[in-house]
Simulated scan of single mutants.
Amino acid sequence: MSIGNSPEDERPFHDVSEEDRPSVGRALQQARIAAGLTVDDVSSATRVRIAIVHAIEADDFAPCGGDVYARGHIRTLARAVHLDPGPLLAQFDAAHGGRPAPTPAAPLFEAERIRPERRGPNWTAAMVAAIVAVIGFVGFTAFKGGDSGSDGKSQVAGGGASPSAGKTPSPTPTQDKPAPPKSDPSDSAIAAAPQDKVTVQVSADNGRSWISAKDHNGRMLFDGLLNKGESKTFQDSSKINLILGDAGAIQLYVNGKKIHDDFRPGAVERLTYTKGDPEVG
């Protein structure tokens, strides 16, 4: 009988240190492969661009555009590959100086403003001023015409000839009313959305949020702050790209149908809708 360690005691002890734990990108990649999903599958399910998915799996978060965007993408990708996003976000925060402090939506995206929203002319005030001018002119003309008629009758009763008795009174000149302003096609009723186009209505039902909308050519349709109770409607022949600064405050209607996504307050969402959305199923 020998005295010493048993074979089990002689096996090397493996300590899973912090360095041995897979990185955030590596963990997402392994979970995606284990789920039998391709990068295209994850991109289609999350609407995160393929290039960004590849970059995150390589632990390159620069294409995300900042830590706030990166955290949102990590949370979205983790859910798509059936991972708990909490540990991954904690690992990301530890590697990038901690969780960023909450920032109001408007200052956060102030640097991304491309151009201010253009305000159209105040057609209502112009129309009211024109109507008031027409009414005043007609009233003044009628008053002067009434005085001239009284003078003519007095001259006829006295035997004098009325100089204007055989003349037809000239018509009263009137000012043309300005044509009412044409409504923007993007403000048309969401229920009447044409089937050959994609129509997206964004409503700030639960608070204010910064939003950005582009058409299929990348042309900016709107870039600004949407206050609570306000809404915007966008329309394009094939595709609308959206960025929501505070998705939890927004309600979406796509092609006449309400979108029932559970967006969290303060979450940043990048969305793309086409003529076939929302899918029937």
Rank of each mutant, 00 (worst) to 15 (best):
V254P: 00
G97L: 14
I56M: 13
V198A: 03
E117A: 13
A165R: 10
S212I: 05
V68R: 15
I135L: 15
R208A: 02
D246L: 04
Q155C: 07
S17M: 01
A31V: 06
S209L: 03
D40Y: 06
L83Q: 14
A45V: 07
E110Q: 11
A34S: 13
I243D: 04
E19F: 09
R113N: 06
A161M: 03
K275H: 09
K144Y: 06
L77I: 12
L37V: 07
V48D: 03
W123T: 09
G229E: 03
A249M: 09
S6I: 02
H216V: 02
R49V: 13
V24F: 12
R115D: 10
D261H: 13
I74T: 02
G97N: 13
D59Y: 09
A189Q: 08
A179Y: 00
N241A: 12
A213H: 11
P7T: 01
R119N: 02
T272V: 15
V42R: 04
A142S: 08
D93N: 10
G160A: 11
S164C: 06
R79C: 01
R71G: 00
T38H: 10
S170N: 05
E18C: 00
V254Y: 06
S186D: 04
T272Y: 07
G276M: 03
S238H: 13
V254E: 03
V68K: 09
T172W: 14
E8N: 06
P265D: 13
A70I: 12
S150V: 10
I52P: 01
G36R: 06
F137I: 04
P181D: 05
Q195G: 07
P22F: 03
A161F: 06
D147S: 12
V48E: 09
E117F: 09
G36V: 14
V156N: 11
D262K: 15
R208Y: 05
A133M: 08
I131G: 14
L108H: 13
Y69G: 13
Q195H: 06
V134W: 09
I259N: 07
A191F: 01
A142K: 05
G25N: 00
A204M: 01
D223F: 08
K182M: 11
I250C: 02
R21K: 14
W123L: 02
I190A: 03
P178V: 12
I250V: 15
G139F: 04
H82K: 10
T103Y: 06
P278S: 11
K232R: 15
E279H: 10
A101N: 07
N255F: 08
G207M: 06
A80F: 10
R32N: 05
G245C: 06
V156R: 15
G139S: 13
A58K: 07
D187C: 11
V132S: 15
R47N: 14
E269Y: 08
L244G: 12
L108F: 11
R270V: 12
K228N: 14
A247W: 07
R119H: 12
V128K: 13
V24I: 04
S188Q: 15
F234T: 09
E230W: 10
N227Y: 08
K228R: 15
S170R: 13
L221R: 14
